[in-house]
């Protein structure tokens, strides 16, 4: 089940999109989220669609993988569609099913909204699918850098995020180990009455908490021993490099926005 989820997973391939600077990709997602709302008719939605599909094609992520990954969210999209179809009462009546009338405006609105939703999901998934979590963190840190002036702990947040990323697999392993150890002591995590199962969380969570705490303490000591003293005077090993491709991507965003303004009604 979990391995079908695409949200938040990184697929290491070699493609123009993979090679782009995480900053430009982050900016792309940010602006895309804004301009999506400019679309309000068939032409503008078509423009958005073409743009999205060009990005997908460039990323070399197998389309099947991408759309399979959309399945868990499909339900949400269908639900939005139905909500609009049944509750928006504008334009001519298309069907009259007796208990409910479907209006043209409702149908269109429903289709538009679900398309908007799909494009948003596709473009944001594309970011995480083509960018390693650590690059995303780096990109964010750089983009938010100016906020440091207002005492925003940008560096600390980025470090926290990269450490969490680093420890997720370790914690998963730990959880499995503790579950097994308690199962061997007679805890039943997978069956039995709900009340019992809720109770069985304690022998799992307490050790997990204790060990995470110990890890955090050890890690803090290890970091200090290696001279960590906050962001001051710190250099970065990972360098981000802004290339022509990234500039092109930004230009294409401008073009997209212009087109959307031109063709929206």
């Amino acid at each position: 089940m979990l391995d079908k989820m695409i949200f938040g997973r990184f697929v290491p391939l070699d493609s123009p999109i993979h090679r782009m600077d995480p900053r430009s990709k982050l900016l792309l997602v940010f602006f895309f989220v804004c301009v999506v709302f400019l679309a309000n008719n068939l032409v503008t939605y078509a423009i958005l669609g073409v743009f999205t599909f060009i990005l997908i094609a460039l990323s070399r992520i197998p389309a099947r993988f991408l759309f399979n990954g959309l399945k868990p969210i499909l339900l949400l999209i269908v639900f939005t569609l139905l909500l609009h179809i049944f509750f928006t009462k504008e334009g001519a009546v298309l069907f009259d099913l007796g208990f409910v009338k479907i209006y043209e405006g409702g149908l269109l609105e429903g289709i538009y909204i679900s398309m908007r939703f799909t494009f948003l999901i596709l473009v944001t998934s594309l970011l995480t699918l083509t960018t390693s979590p650590i690059s995303i963190t780096d990109g964010m840190e750089q983009l938010l850098g100016p906020l440091k002036k207002w005492k925003m702990p940008v560096h600390e947040l980025a470090l926290m995020m990269s450490i969490s990323l680093r420890f997720i697999p370790t914690l998963m392993e730990e959880t499995e180990k503790i579950m097994k150890a308690q199962t061997a002591r007679g805890v039943d995590f997978s069956s039995g009455p709900v009340k019992e199962r809720v109770k069985s969380i304690v022998p799992l969570l307490v050790p997990l908490f204790v060990s995470s705490f110990k890890r955090a303490e050890d890690l803090a000591i290890a970091m200090e021993a290696r001279g960590y003293r906050g962001s001051e005077g710190r250099t970065k090993y990972r360098q981000l490099s802004w290339q022509t491709l990234d500039t092109l991507l930004m230009c294409s965003l401008v073009v997209l926005t212009a087109l959307l303004f031109l063709f929206r009604s």
């Binding site: 503790i178 150890a181 204790v210 060990s211």
Partner: peptide
């Protein structure tokens, strides 16, 4: 069949 895992102190709670 009782199992004493590696670092069993991690299971105390």
């Amino acid at each position: 069949v009782g199992i004493v895992f590696q670092f069993p102190e991690h299971q105390l709670f």
